[in-house]
Computed example of a mutant assay.
Amino acid sequence: MKNGGVFILNKQLVIQTDFGTCDGAVSAMYGVAVSVDPTLRISDLTHEIPQYNIWEASYRLYQTISYWPEETVFVSVVDPGVGSERRSIAVKTATNHYIITPDNGTLTHIKESVGIIEARIIDEHENCLPQTGNSYTFYGRDLYAYTSARLAANILSFEEIGATVPVESIVELPKKRASLQDQTVVGNIDILDVRFGNLWTNIDEDLFKQLEVTYGDLCEVTIENDARQVYKHVMTFGRSFADTHVGEPLLYINSLYTIGVAINQGSFAKAYHIGAGAQWKITVRKVSPGILS
């Protein structure tokens, strides 16, 4: 965009939804953004968030955001409460990225693991797509795509979006921290690596290494769903999937430097009917050689 004879480079705009791509919803959001500024650089984070799954939307933002340039604008629309009293919010992260989203828990992982330094309520009267009529069911197009595109195109400053609100007031989903208890690491299955069926936990590499585990060691892994045991077995801690035979399970450090659970060339999630979220508990303990239980 040109401002007073000086060209200002537009920010990146990255879009995430649970809309899928089988109809025109995502295309409509693109259309609004391009109508704001045809030179915008727009990318998709994903449109395959399971319907209404705010937890997964939160995690996918956390998984992705730090790999984008500073000042990238993210818009995330997983909004089962669209048209209700839930707030629409814009935030600036500690990594100098912007997120436009419903204030419904979508910022849970960002707030805890990345950090939010400023939050503003989106003024829905000032920032809504003109001539949208009386429809209150497609804020993704009419409010979020329009506002995020104007922010990315430097038409609207972050300060002009709306009034500031305390960062502490941002809605968060229940989220437990991993811990070390009696030489056992206890955590949760945060998310599934959907395409391959691997389990990604909230046990980070540093916490896991307090078990004094090295590559090739055996660990006993127990998985529970609301206190009901679903899985218990001994497996190898490996560098990669090639450290076990095809069809065998293993522990590994995933791309976010947390502990993952996988089956070499198989889907762990499908094999044992395992999901993700706060109710899915995982415990890991090192097994001494010759002592399997």
Results as ranks from 00 to 15, higher is better:
residue 244 T to E: 11
residue 187 G to L: 01
residue 22 C to V: 12
residue 79 D to N: 15
residue 20 G to Q: 09
residue 87 R to N: 07
residue 96 N to G: 05
residue 215 Y to Q: 13
residue 239 R to F: 07
residue 150 R to F: 09
residue 222 T to G: 07
residue 51 Q to V: 15
residue 183 Q to K: 10
residue 206 D to Y: 08
residue 252 Y to N: 08
residue 231 Y to G: 03
residue 51 Q to F: 11
residue 167 V to A: 01
residue 72 T to M: 02
residue 174 P to V: 01
residue 154 N to M: 08
residue 55 W to N: 07
residue 122 I to E: 00
residue 132 T to I: 12
residue 222 T to V: 09
residue 53 N to T: 07
residue 78 V to Q: 01
residue 109 H to A: 04
residue 199 L to I: 06
residue 171 V to P: 02
residue 270 K to T: 12
residue 6 V to H: 11
residue 264 N to S: 14
residue 244 T to L: 12
residue 62 Y to Q: 02
residue 194 V to R: 10
residue 269 A to L: 09
residue 14 V to L: 14
residue 288 S to A: 14
residue 104 N to F: 03
residue 248 E to L: 13
residue 222 T to R: 06
residue 4 G to K: 07
residue 158 F to W: 04
residue 86 R to I: 01
residue 182 D to E: 08
residue 281 K to Q: 04
residue 136 Y to I: 13
residue 146 Y to E: 10
residue 6 V to L: 14
residue 29 M to V: 11
residue 232 K to R: 12
residue 165 V to L: 04
residue 242 A to L: 14
residue 81 G to I: 02
residue 81 G to E: 02
residue 41 R to K: 14
residue 44 D to I: 10
residue 104 N to C: 03
residue 253 I to D: 07
residue 187 G to N: 03
residue 1 M to W: 11
residue 193 D to Y: 10
residue 53 N to P: 06
residue 49 I to Q: 02
residue 174 P to W: 00
